[in-house]
């Protein structure tokens, strides 16, 4: 008799299929594992470290680790949540994330995850990096201040839209998103509003113009409910 393929996430039995990652198996079972650089339709990246869980005593990213029979996985343990809070605090000071002045506020996954792990303090010194805004495209705004280098737009443009509009340049703290066009400007690229790349930005870096305030602040997705329904917040 074939053994049922299953893993255990925070004590809950979760069935999985061959070639599924822990993230995919959890998602299929309705269990939320925090993530910023993961999108179910794109190849996993494993870079944001928000989805790090403990698998049989080892800390691994859930989006790049295959589910294997009998894995004991911790997702919502206090030390893992504290690590995620720290990663978010690092992300917030590394860019210029001015929530009160951002069109994405309330719909932003970076912000929503910070709420989810109750990020109250800034903890680190701010970088205040000098970054620019590319408003050259008639329909699209690209604000480099808010980019967290998750490469979701890059992967979507390359692998789904087959346009390869974006790339990352340089190394270390100088790493930045850039546009693959002769001028480096969005207006000279082939990016269009209907592209997959326009649907995946977790923050307010890539925005459609004219629509930013259609839903007022306070009435947006994460103003209404936490990013992971079922996570303990209000009890």
């Amino acid at each position: 008799m074939a053994e049922t393929a299953e893993i255990f996430i925070d004590g809950q039995r979760v069935a999985f299929q061959a070639e599924q990652t822990i993230m995919m198996a959890a998602h299929a079972a309705g269990i939320y594992i925090p993530h910023l650089c993961h999108h179910p339709e794109l190849k996993p990246h494993g870079s944001c470290r928000l989805c790090v869980v403990e698998v049989n005593g080892r800390k691994l990213s859930a989006c790049t680790t295959l589910a294997q029979q009998g894995q004991i996985i911790h997702n919502q343990r206090a030390d893992l949540i504290a690590s995620r809070r720290c990663v978010l605090q690092l992300l917030f000071v590394e860019g210029n994330h001015v929530c009160p002045a951002c069109e994405k506020s309330g719909d932003c996954q970076l912000q929503a995850l910070a709420y989810a792990v109750e990020m109250i303090s800034p903890r680190f010194a701010h970088f205040y990096p000098q970054r620019t805004v590319d408003a050259s495209h008639p329909d699209i705004l690209l604000d480099y201040n808010r980019c967290i280098l998750c490469e979701l737009c890059l992967r979507a443009s390359r692998d789904v839209d087959h346009k390869n509009v974006f790339s990352l340049q340089q190394r270390g703290d100088k790493t930045h998103l850039s546009v693959n066009s002769a001028s480096g400007q969005l207006a000279d690229s082939t990016l269009a509003l209907g592209d997959k790349a326009m649907q995946v930005c977790p923050v307010g870096a890539l925005l459609s113009k004219q629509t930013a305030y259609q839903t007022p602040i306070g009435a947006r997705l994460y103003d209404q409910k936490p990013i992971a329904q079922g996570e303990a917040h209000d009890g």
Binding site: N96, V98, C99, S121, P122, H126, Y128
Partner: peptide, 15 residues
């Protein structure tokens, strides 16, 4: 408040 925690809107002049 945002300004005390991370500089907020006034800190946008840091660029």
């Amino acid at each position: 408040g945002a300004c005390a925690l991370n500089g907020g809107i006034p800190a946008m002049r840091n660029s």
